[in-house]
C-alpha cells in the first residue's frame, strides 16, 4: 500500500514540557487508523502539528509525497487534509450551511456560483443527516448536531485525509453507531481517516490499525487486537 501521510521524527515541546518526542508515523492510502492514548499524551498536539496550527520543533511531515512541514494551515487544508476539533469551533455568526460554504470555497477551491455551492453543501448535510438544520445557527444545535456540523464542515473541504479529533465524546450509544456508520461510508468513498478516540468500542470497531501515544511517545503500532494486549499499553491506560 502506498503511503499518504508520513511523519518523521516529530518533536514539540512547550517550555520544559515535552509534548511530542521523536514521533514516526505512516498512514496508508485509504486506511482507517485509530490513534489512542491517555489525556495529555500528545494526540491533539500531533494533529495540530500536521495541520499547521502548531510549528514542530523538529521533524518533517510529508503528504502525498510533498513536504508540508510548517506550511500555513490554509495551504495544508487546500492540499487535502481536513480535521474536526475536539471542542467544536463553529463560525458563530453564520448558519450551518454558510459554515460549510467556507471550506467549499476556500479549501476545495471550487469555482462555482453561490447556488451551486449551496447545493453542494446541502448534499453533504443530507449525507450526514443534518439536512433540516441548514439555516439554523450553530449556537442552537444540540451536542450531537454540533459534532455532525464539525464533521460536515471538514468534509466540505473535500479532503483526502480526514482527521477526527474525539468527535464521539459524550454521544449516546445509538448516536455512536450512527456516526460509525457514516465513517464507514466515507471510508468506502476512498477517504483516508485518522480517528482519535477515547471510546475503545468505537476505535476497535472502526480501525484497521491502532497507534498508541503515551507521554509524547509512540508506544505501540499494529493491529487493534495485538495492540490492546500489549502490556505497555495496558500500563499506560491502567497505571501501575
Amino acid at each position: 500500500m502506498a503511503s499518504l501521510l508520513e511523519v518523521h521524527d516529530l518533536t514539540k515541546s512547550f517550555g520544559g514540557f515535552s509534548a511530542l518526542n521523536h514521533i514516526d508515523l505512516v498512514v496508508h492510502r485509504g486506511e482507517r487508523l485509530g490513534l489512542i492514548g491517555p489525556n495529555g499524551s500528545g494526540k491533539t498536539t500531533l494533529i495540530n502539528c500536521i495541520t499547521g496550527v502548531l510549528r514542530p520543533d523538529r521533524g518533517r511531515i510529508y503528504f502525498d509525497g510533498e513536504e508540508i512541514t510548517s506550511l500555513a494551515s490554509f495551504r495544508i487544508a487546500r492540499a487535502g487534509i481536513a480535521r474536526s476539533f475536539q471542542i467544536p469551533r463553529p463560525f458563530r455568526s453564520m448558519t450551518v450551511l454558510e459554515n460549510l460554504c467556507i471550506p467549499l470555497r476556500f479549501a476545495a477551491a471550487v469555482k462555482m456560483r453561490s447556488t451551486e455551492l449551496e447545493a453542494a453543501a446541502r448534499e453533504i448535510l443530507e449525507l450526514i443527516g443534518l439536512g433540516d438544520k441548514a439555516t439554523a445557527s450553530p449556537l442552537d444545535l444540540t451536542q450531537i448536531e454540533m459534532r455532525k456540523m464539525e464533521l460536515s464542515r471538514a468534509l466540505a473541504s473535500r479532503p483526502r485525509l480526514l482527521i477526527l479529533d474525539e468527535v464521539m465524546a459524550g454521544l449516546a450509544s445509538s448516536e455512536l453507531d450512527e456516526m460509525l456508520a457514516i465513517f464507514h461510508i466515507l471510508s468506502g468513498q476512498g477517504i483516508t481517516i485518522i480517528m482519535i478516540e477515547h471510546i475503545l468500542r468505537a476505535v476497535m470497531n472502526f480501525s484497521q490499525r491502532l497507534v498508541v501515544l503515551d507521554a509524547g511517545r509512540k508506544i505501540a503500532d499494529g493491529s487493534p487486537g495485538d495492540v490492546i494486549k500489549n502490556p505497555q499499553v495496558e500500563k499506560a491506560y491502567l497505571g501501575e
Partner: peptide, 25 residues
C-alpha cells in the same frame, strides 16, 4: 463578497478559518 465571508470566518474563529482553507494572514 467571499473576501468578506473569509473575514467573518476569521473573526468568528481564526484557527478554524485557517484549517478550512481561509488564507488568514
Amino acid at each position: 463578497s467571499w473576501f468578506g465571508r473569509g473575514l467573518a470566518a476569521i473573526r468568528d474563529d481564526e484557527v478554524a478559518a485557517a484549517c478550512n482553507g481561509v488564507p488568514v494572514l
